[in-house]
Write a protein that binds this DNA or RNA. Structure first.
Length: 285
DNA sequence: GCGACAG
DNA sequence: ATCTTGTCGC
């Protein structure tokens, strides 16, 4: 795929004020309403709702072809096989000295159909709120190597949950004008509607815009979503999911749940994370 | 000045 | 994000 709107590409050489100005433009260009042509229920064959797990490792599965196709899943009119399912791209990075290894794993259902990566020199430090100016370039490099246009991009980081409603997922979604969602492990800004501690799998609560966010106070900019949970001692923190581009806050939760597997992180992102680490390891030997 | 802050 | 062993619990 290629950047459809390169004018929004994050230039790491901009001044801080210019970066923030560009983010305002990105937020204005972003669409936080559903605008994609596949059903969330077609994303995966096995719509296993989030479970409360008892163990840690069960059977190792890295997304290889599944044993059989289920033509009789919920809905009935869904895709019959992985080959008909929407193309989902998971994006994540690993770092090595002053270089970023950006990895993209493409999935159709539970089948990994492609993996690409790019090694790019970093030119800007990590600054909360300006992440896309550090990782955006490297990510664009990797996504540009993807042959087919994904139906959805899943990022490791925030989307609309951002001071200027222009987090990494939103910024990249706008640059490629592709539906995208952000999945962060920590909350950047905004206020959860209720306590997020020790919640059962499947639980979610809205994240509202507060004084730190450039949006009408109370606007739902994302959700805390408990993808997995243990039934005993230790507890797992929730994920903070938010719209990137062309997806609503509510649908974002549904999509993240749909692409989620048996781990805390959704499969696309989890596999991209592992791939980035793998490339990094091979690269440092 | 103090506190807060995705990856 | 990254630097890293053991350890608790199923």
């Amino acid at each position: 795929m290629e950047p459809v709107r390169p004018e929004f590409a994050p230039d790491p050489d901009l001044s801080r004020d210019e970066m923030e100005a560009l983010q305002h433009d990105v937020a204005d260009a972003a669409e936080f309403t559903d605008s994609f042509d596949f059903a969330p229920t077609d994303v995966t064959a096995n719509h296993v709702p989030p479970e409360t797990v008892t163990g840690v490792n069960e059977t190792l599965s890295t997304g290889g072809p599944d044993a059989g196709d289920d033509d009789t899943e919920s809905g009935g009119i869904g895709a019959a096989s992985d080959s008909e399912r929407p193309l989902i791209a998971g994006v994540d990075q690993a770092f090595l000295d002053d270089h970023a290894v950006s990895a993209v794993v493409l999935l159709r259902g539970s089948t990994v159909v492609d993996r690409v990566y790019a090694v790019t020199e970093l030119s800007t430090p990590y600054i909360p709120g300006l992440l896309s100016f550090r990782e955006g370039g490297p990510i664009i490099d990797a996504l540009s190597a993807v042959e087919r246009d994904p139906d959805l991009l899943v990022f490791d980081g925030s989307g609309r949950i951002h001071y200027r409603q222009a987090g990494l997922a939103t910024h990249m979604g706008v640059v490629f004008d592709t539906p995208s969602v952000g999945v962060a492990k920590n909350l950047l800004c905004g206020t959860p509607a209720e306590s997020v501690t020790d919640r059962p799998a499947g639980w979610r609560t809205p994240i509202h815009a507060d004084a730190d966010v450039n949006a009408d106070p109370g606007t739902v900019i994302g959700h805390a979503y408990q993808s997995r949970q243990y039934d005993t001692n230790r507890t797992i923190n929730p994920l903070y999911v938010s719209p990137g581009h062309r997806v609503s806050a509510e649908t974002t939760v549904e999509l993240v749940a749909a692409v989620g597997g048996k781990y805390k992180l959704p499969e696309p992102t989890r596999l991209a994370d592992a791939y980035a680490d793998e490339v990094k390891r091979d690269l440092s030997e």
